[in-house]
Design a protein around this nucleic acid. Sequence first.
DNA 1: GTGAAAGCGCTAACAC
DNA 2: GTGTTAGCGCTTTCAC
Lengths: 351, 351
Amino acid sequence: MSRTQSVPLGRPRQYGIDMPTLKDVAKASGVSVMTVSNVVNGRPRVSEATRQRVLAAVDELGYQVNLTARSLRAGRSGTIALSIPRVDHPYFAELAAAVTDALLPSGRHLVVEQTGASREGELSALSQARLQMYDGVLLSVVGLKDSEVARLNGDMPLVLLGEKPMPTARDHVQLGNFEGAQLATSYLIQRGARRIAIVGGTLDADHTGMVGTRTGGWRAAHAAAGLDADVRLVLPPAHFAMAESREMIRNAIKGGLLVDAVFAVTDQVAIGVMAGLHDCGLRVPHDVQVVGFDDLDVSEHLVPGLTTVDPRVDLVVAESLRLLERRMAGEESDAEHLVMPVRLVVRGTTR
Amino acid sequence: MSRTQSVPLGRPRQYGIDMPTLKDVAKASGVSVMTVSNVVNGRPRVSEATRQRVLAAVDELGYQVNLTARSLRAGRSGTIALSIPRVDHPYFAELAAAVTDALLPSGRHLVVEQTGASREGELSALSQARLQMYDGVLLSVVGLKDSEVARLNGDMPLVLLGEKPMPTARDHVQLGNFEGAQLATSYLIQRGARRIAIVGGTLDADHTGMVGTRTGGWRAAHAAAGLDADVRLVLPPAHFAMAESREMIRNAIKGGLLVDAVFAVTDQVAIGVMAGLHDCGLRVPHDVQVVGFDDLDVSEHLVPGLTTVDPRVDLVVAESLRLLERRMAGEESDAEHLVMPVRLVVRGTTR
DNA sequence: GTGAAAGCGCTAACAC
DNA sequence: GTGTTAGCGCTTTCAC
């Protein structure tokens, strides 16, 4: 009697023809919706005959489960979100790909959200409302302050990635920024460099954040070698773009800055630096050695190949997902704050 | 009386504390859920006093709309999906970023789905069920056959991107593959090249798809110049990876292949080729000229800068979104099939 | 201006 | 094994 025929309450526009529902399949196969649900979800106690009949109807009508409805009812969406600033920053793209690959065996679904690397973007991408649609979120924080991150609903499974200080109450995985920068700079010193510019570094006293920490590593390597870290060697581009870095090193050198090596805070910056050095007629590594940070896919195939810090994204991803799975399983253990190890990959831009 | 206190029907696990609902806000502010809904959605007929009271309660309880529920009821999610093979393929990453930027002013939300460039991946990412969660989908097809794409629900707003033949019933935007390849090859011929390898080309007679079409352009340019396109110059890597392309050109040259130029079907391939040529002691562009296709961000900053075909992703994105908006608005006009113009960007890898 | 009722499509719980 | 009931949180409809 309660068939949905004259649609009393305007069925929301599904862009044309309505998709068949469990009810339709139930009607077509002469069973209850619950039985159809059981079949569709592969639950045990269904007789083979019924199963076949239902499956036939599913097939004929082209039934597909409505994930929104399931999600509303079940409280789980089966989807994890990875929130990164932008996919066209190769480091984040490679991170996203690594997460996707790592998630493949688990059968979970991943979507990538872009925040735009701004506070506003992150705030909107991270609105509780949005996040609620996912079973778990891997959040790469760039713009937000830790106090803002701390305001996020504590009950949502969330693992933080990124190089800023984070609320202690949340799981957080970060790269060995300090260690990597120190490693890179020490290696340059060891290879004879004495005037090592840091492109993408900061003069700021704040030694937190990706830039601050890496600059700290650069400083520490100098100190460890008993060398002076000349502040004029700190070149701070506003973004970490190739074009900008290229121009910055070029201007510095044309302006008379003496440099026999560059530690670029990212491989993107390093690529710009290599181009800029070439613009100045300087040869890499003969005149100026270069070390980057990120070990992008492309870095291996530059000419010469870029010596760089491998941030071990594989470890970052594995640990992050371990922590996230734990939270999604409802575990309430103390938050972990991990700093992954890094390693130096030596290629042709160093002597 | 009907307060949710002893949860008769197990409220689905929302990972801990329940989020407040409209009902909670309604109770707290002494109005009906409907009024709260009206306030929350900024609908007109609500008295200022009521609005303030509701807003206060929203604030106090930290209410956030449940997008899943809204989506189920309203039939719209406010979200668009961009489905691409992988985000760590720079071309797709840049495409995704371009879509994101283009969508920004509209206030729409975008999520990126990765299909993994396989038929299976695409089929699963494209299950009707998944797609139903979005108001519109921009689908970059790689693995699927057009017949499989054709089976997708015709009522879902969907615009196809990609270089394969597509069902005529769906909107489809593609790059000027043939034109670009011809442009690149003709330019090389014009610059004196006579032995132009195509790395990433195919010997297949099938002249559809990205590879087939670009190989066709390479062939056509030869024909137009009255030259012979030597099939030994067609080097077909299985994927479009840098490492693979590098090895392939290296082996070919060590194996005695005479080459004075390379048309690489993508910039990724071109980067591998440049590295491979360097491995062989050949100089670019002095000994071998190189032209790519994609005009990636990095291509400008390689040393030497890569001459390449700019696929005008900006146009592709603008047109795709125009078509998608039209479908989302419910327009039923005939499907459009667009091929965007391209242009050659001349840099240092050609003479 | 405000609210009661209905129900989007699905599943947990429990009856038979 | 199968069906019935009761909602998940929201918005549409329509009465007041």
